[in-house]
């Protein structure tokens, strides 16, 4: 077991209805870590996220937030307990302004809303002058930032990102990855699922490689990206990164 463990997924078996997608998954995230889950399409990466959030039915296994069991807790409560979640698509309220989006992220926050706004505009300076614009009018990268800021509004203990760079141009992708690092430096552990395995591993402390709903490889970010088998399977055929 990791020191200072924030989130743990132990022997998770889950799926949609009768179809089992995750067979036996183990994932841990420690405080101050960026952890990436990579793997080919259909490996069950997003399913892990949905299981943690309580969107899916869990057949067996346990999920812990710090030392608290959150297995089978419904999504709105998981969020209240401190899991910030950014879905892959449709992750902002398009007809609401940026600031209203942040406010929605802080639904259960009783006080200190203004301070939280300031905190987010410092963390995401790009959003500062767009605060009264509808989120639907922003670019893909900016929307992603709104989504992250929204997820951070409640004092999250960990941030879950489901393919944060999907569909973004290389320029924005780079920006998002550096934003993720910045968020992490502020003391936030991050668990993300990524399609762009190479870049994701570069900024990650550790990584998990999933194949067909099971753990295949585990290691440090740099270790995994230099592993020839991982490189051959998921990072393109040009060998190590």
């Amino acid at each position: 077991m990791l020191q200072n463990r924030i989130l743990a997924v132990e022997n998770l078996v889950a799926g949609y209805g009768e179809t089992e997608i995750l067979h036996d998954i183990n994932i841990e995230v420690a405080g101050h870590e960026i952890v990436s889950i990579i793997g080919p399409n259909g490996a069950g990466k997003s399913t892990v996220m949905k299981s943690i959030l309580g969107i899916l039915n869990i057949n067996r296994g346990n999920i812990f937030l710090e030392s608290k069991q959150i297995t089978g807790v419904k999504p709105s409560d998981v969020v209240k307990l401190g899991v910030g979640y950014v879905p892959q698509t449709d992750n902002v309220f398009v007809s609401l302004t940026v600031q209203e989006n942040l406010e929605m992220g802080a639904w259960t926050l009783r006080s200190g809303l203004e301070n939280k706004f300031d905190e987010m505009y410092t963390l995401f300076p790009d959003l500062s002058d767009k605060r009264f614009q509808a989120a639907g009018q922003l670019s893909g990268g900016q929307r992603q930032m709104v989504a992250m800021a929204k997820a951070l509004m409640l004092d999250a203990k960990i941030l879950l990102l489901d393919e944060p760079t999907a569909g973004l141009s290389p320029k924005f992708r780079h920006e998002i990855f550096s934003t993720i690092q910045r968020i992490n430096k502020s003391g936030m552990p991050i668990l993300m699922v990524e399609q762009n395995a190479k870049q994701a591993l570069q900024i990650s402390h550790r990584g998990y490689v999933l194949v067909d709903g099971s753990n295949r490889h585990t290691g440090t970010g740099t270790g995994l990206s230099s592993d020839p088998e991982v490189a051959r399977m998921f990072l393109g055929s040009r060998g190590s990164v």
Binding site: P75, S76, V79, P87, V94, L96, E100, M104, W107
Partner: peptide, 23 residues
């Protein structure tokens, strides 16, 4: 707040649930 919440749920109910809004 409740009015903005109504707009949010109308906009995207699934996101509202995972944002912690009390639907």
């Amino acid at each position: 707040k409740i009015g903005k919440g109504m707009r949010a749920v109308s906009d995207n109910p699934d996101l509202a649930k995972v944002s912690g809004i009390d639907v």
